[in-house]
Design a protein around this nucleic acid. Structure first.
Length: 259
DNA sequence: AGTACCACCTGACGGC
DNA sequence: TGCCGTCAGGTGGTAC
């Protein structure tokens, strides 16, 4: 699930659970997730430290270690789990942090598509990766400039992390549905009104999803999210939603509402 | 510059 | 029940 609302929910979860405890154990169970650092150095960077605070940029989560930051990306299936008893350790935990108070924080990723690492700072990482501004931070003027700078399909542009960070396949559909724009509309052909509408939709959709803790079952009835299926009904007009392929992903939309 | 396709992994689900 | 193909909310590389 991990798009911006999911990762923000994980961030708040970490804040509410694992902050400020001393890390006594580091068990990395999937080395391939490590980015640019050896397992030994990764362990040394964490052991004896505590997670002082958290930050998020797009789909990336950072935790301050005092001299460097723990980096987490959740791929398609990643999440966090905080628990006390060893028996509650979830399946597919790829990193298990144990705290001095006996609690554990697991980074769980069934498909091993995420990333773990240690970085100097969130800012430096964002710069090095060439990530665009966070989708919740980007102002209208910048939004207009970013979308006006590419001839690609609007759905692709929204999902391009180098342009705007945080929007993935499902929420790009949701945003376009709310803004009533066709996923294949040209990014630089929206015009002022539709660009403003789209910018408002980005904020509204992401903030609502965060309020609902990114839980699909808790989304408002007006959301398209729970109707992304064959024969699904548009919550606005009652018509049948349609699936198309955009940048190799399944995009769902309502042909009647979105032009 | 933009797009299609493949690969990385594993699990879930429908069809036979 | 078991096997097989297909698909999955991400990203990065390649080739056109």
């Amino acid at each position: 699930m991990p798009e911006l609302p999911d990762v923000e929910t994980y961030r708040r979860y970490l804040d509410a659970t694992a902050l400020h405890s001393v890390i006594s154990g580091v068990d990395l169970r999937a080395k391939r997730l490590l980015e640019g650092i050896s397992a030994a150095r990764f362990g040394r960077a964490l052991r004896g430290k505590s997670l002082r605070s958290t930050r998020r940029h797009g789909k990336y989560l950072f935790a301050d270690l005092g001299d460097g930051w723990l980096l987490m990306h959740f791929g398609m299936t990643g999440r966090l789990a905080y628990f006390k008893r060893a028996g509650d350790d979830p399946e597919h935990d790829r990193l298990l942090l144990t705290f001095a108070d006996g609690w554990h924080l697991a980074y769980v990723a069934p498909r091993k598509l995420g990333r773990l690492g240690i970085v100097d700072s969130p800012e430096a990482f964002v710069e090095n990766e060439g990530l665009g501004p966070d989708a919740l931070e980007v102002g209208l003027d910048e939004f207009r400039r970013i979308l006006g700078g590419t001839r690609s399909m609007i759905k692709s542009a929204l999902m391009d992390q180098g342009r705007i960070a945080g929007i993935g396949n499902v929420y790009s559909d949701e945003i376009l549905f709310r803004a009533r724009l066709h996923p294949r509309a040209r990014s630089d052909g929206l015009g002022a009104d539709r660009t403003r509408r789209l910018h408002r939709a980005v904020r509204a959709v992401l903030e609502t999803a965060i309020d609902r803790k990114a839980d699909p079952g808790a989304m408002p009835p007006s959301f398209l999210l729970n109707h992304r299926e064959e024969g699904g009904r548009c919550p606005r007009c009652g018509g049948t939603v349609k699936r198309i392929s955009v940048s190799g992903r399944s995009g769902w939309y309502c042909p009647r509402c979105q032009r």
